[in-house]
Design a protein around this nucleic acid. Structure first.
Lengths: 337, 337
DNA sequence: ATGAAAGCGCTAACAT
DNA sequence: ATGTTAGCGCTTTCAT
């Protein structure tokens, strides 16, 4: 930059003004500086600029699990919105490890991203204290963590779960196996709560053995599903509370040679390839997954434009998409004759 | 840092030495500095350090398409290796747009990542000129671009495609529809070449109308598959040259009410959920997708450890996994009786 | 073993 | 409208 200034016969501040498109520079000088920059192959050093100005024109996104089926759509949507607004987006993976999450939060904040989107790793470990040291706005997506003033995006997990349970109960299912996902993220907890409340309200006793906890390991789902289906009496339906558990569940169903929905109904959260291509197609609780990414970036941009706006909470809803995998249990089908 | 120095009654250089674990500091002083840092809540400014030292202890990964089915596994694997070695990994999405790719390459290099992994966007636009201005090592994965000294990871696309074609030809298929993917990335080109060479060698004429180009739009694959299957005479097999094309192809097969493999055999590249859960399971060309991510990071770390080692090229192979979706075409099955 | 001092490349007062 | 100057927070010679 110093070189450019010398070459153009101006001061560094003029160069800076030209490079940053600031006013108060005559066209003649501007032109001269531009040519000098071109001639010397000048490229501005983002690091120095960021360090000085505190702004980097970039956003950070920390996801819980890059292998999770919804993650790609979320990232792609977020990136598209960021790109449209000329922001770089850097994606990091906490892999559900609060320690790693902490590292990445620190790293991104230190690198002065202008905004941060956070799918927090674990409700029990609150890393949001880090945010206090920085002015950087944050959007919390589907996070159970509190104690920080931030925009939020949540999904209506409890309601969705209730809808799902009612659909099955409405078909006549009384013994429903529930595949539970990690209970240390809000969606895991809330979905289970919703299921239980519906079952209780319907007067069906919940056999606790039918609630199968898979932790956060998709592989557990095959084992847990198999366990449930081999009970006596077996459940007549399986409610798969998280999309990542579905493949394991279907594998178990197949390996036991059970017919869907004749032997067992299957209902899963989130629509995706495997739910459409399974035979029969799977009844799902569907939502706009990519909205989690795109709306998060939009919220960030809004806040950057107007830092004083009150914190907002957006909710993304599910809807039931009934398909061939759910039907009345066999006993009822035959009627009470 | 200045504050810490004052608080501890030492100079800033001593603080720097302690913070960076440099030798030549007495334990007494070290202790005093550490306590001062603790007391003042000191955190080193990564930006300033990176700017001064040129090193950031982070790696960059630019992928072609975050929505592509293989991308999640690649990123997750890369992240895992990076994490193990205490490097931060920042993932960016070029979305197959060379302009965006250029932006992200610049951005990451400017931010002084210690290494860069690049799935280049398009063989026709070479953004590698940017690398010349930086000492940053790069790993090129599955890239047709040349002109830069870099470690590379490639997949044996042509051989895999030949294996696939031979499998189908060996079953007796003569009219094979080929779903082609973007011809501006090497895997797209090489797979088509492999297919054509086998067909020619087998003395089968390739009806050019059976080679259906889907560009880089997964949605095109349903239309193109349907078009091929409605020809007279129809093909007896479909070779899906890229995993992202499979859902569309299967949708077309179903909508035409064709039985797999009785009416049409299906063979696809890359094993994944939908290939396992489709009925019948799909015959695939299988490879270790996550190795593309993990090996890339490993190569980068090796080069950082020893910058003088000669550039290497690693090849990831495919293997045929024959399943129920491929069989002899019907005419042959009935025999020549 | 420790400290002083010179920048890294840029922005932002402030002065003119 | 343009230039001068003082840092941003750190690392890194170079002295001592």
């Amino acid at each position: 930059m110093k070189d450019v200034a010398r070459y153009a016969g101006v001061s560094v501040s003029t160069v800076s003004r030209v490079v940053n498109d600031y006013p108060h520079v005559t066209d003649k000088l501007r032109e001269r500086v531009l040519q000098a920059a071109e001639a010397l192959g000048y490229r501005t050093n983002i690091l120095a600029r960021t360090m000085r100005s505190g702004r980097s024109h970039s956003l950070g996104l920390i996801v819980r699990d890059m292998l999770s089926a919804n993650f790609a759509a979320i990232c792609a949507a977020a990136e598209a919105v960021a790109e449209t607004n000329d922001y770089d987006l850097f994606v990091c993976n906490s892999n559900r490890d609060p320690g790693k999450e902490r590292r990445y939060i620190k790293s991104l904040l230190e690198r002065k991203v202008d905004g941060l989107i956070l799918f927090t790793a674990d409700d029990r470990i609150n890393n949001l204290d880090l945010l206090e040291n920085y002015p950087t706005p944050v959007v919390l997506v589907s996070s159970g963590l509190t104690g920080v003033k931030a925009d939020r995006i949540d999904t209506c997990d409890e309601i969705a779960s209730m809808t799902a349970a009612r659909h099955l109960a409405g078909l006549g299912h009384a013994r429903i196996a529930y595949l539970a996902w990690g209970q240390h993220i809000p969606s895991g907890k809330r979905r289970l709560t919703g299921f239980e409340s519906v079952m209780r309200a319907a007067g069906k006793s919940i056999d606790p053995i039918l609630v199968r906890h898979c932790g956060v390991d998709p592989h557990r789902s095959e084992i847990e599903t198999r366990f449930a289906l081999e009970l006596d009496p077996p459940p007549t339906a399986v409610l798969v509370s998280t999309t990542d558990l579905l493949p394991g569940a279907l594998t178990a169903v197949r390996s036991l040679d059970l017919a869907v929905p004749d032997d067992v109904s299957v209902l899963a959260f989130d629509d995706r390839e495997v739910t459409r291509f399974f035979d029969p197609p799977i009844t799902v609780m569907k939502r706009d997954v990519s909205a989690l990414g795109s709306q998060a970036v939009e919220l960030l941009l809004k806040r950057l434009a107007d830092p004083s706006r009150p914190p907002s909470t957006t909710e993304v809803a599910f809807s039931l998409l009934a398909r061939g995998s759910t039907a009345a249990p066999r006993q009822l089908e035959r009627g009470p004759s």
